[in-house]
């Protein structure tokens, strides 16, 4: 199951709050997160890793980034 979070345009710490609450809700699976700044990219990746999720993809997407995290 895959879920998408659109955190583009949201300032600190909203992208991390959204990611963390989805992680709590799902406990495992695959989450795709869209962000628009490098800071958000780093913060979301760091938060996911700290919860034991694997950061699988970080790639440019439009003017921002697409991040895919997964936990089996």
């Amino acid at each position: 199951m895959s879920t998408r979070i659109d955190a583009r345009g949201l300032s600190c710490p909203q992208p991390v709050i959204l990611t963390m609450s989805k992680i709590r809700e799902m406990t495992k699976g695959r989450i795709e997160i869209l962000v628009d700044t490098d800071t958000s990219k780093e913060n979301v990746s760091r938060a996911a890793k700290s919860k034991g999720w694997d950061v699988q993809i970080v790639e440019p997407d439009g003017s921002g980034y697409r991040i895919v995290i997964q936990k089996d």
């Binding site: 600190c12 963390m20 938060a47 700290s50």
Partner: peptide, 19 residues
């Protein structure tokens, strides 16, 4: 580095993060 004094305290209380 994204250095932020408020963020330092906020992330600790909000997420338990010490980055």
């Amino acid at each position: 580095s994204r250095f932020c004094t408020m963020g330092a305290i906020r992330d600790l209380t909000l997420f338990g993060q010490t980055h």
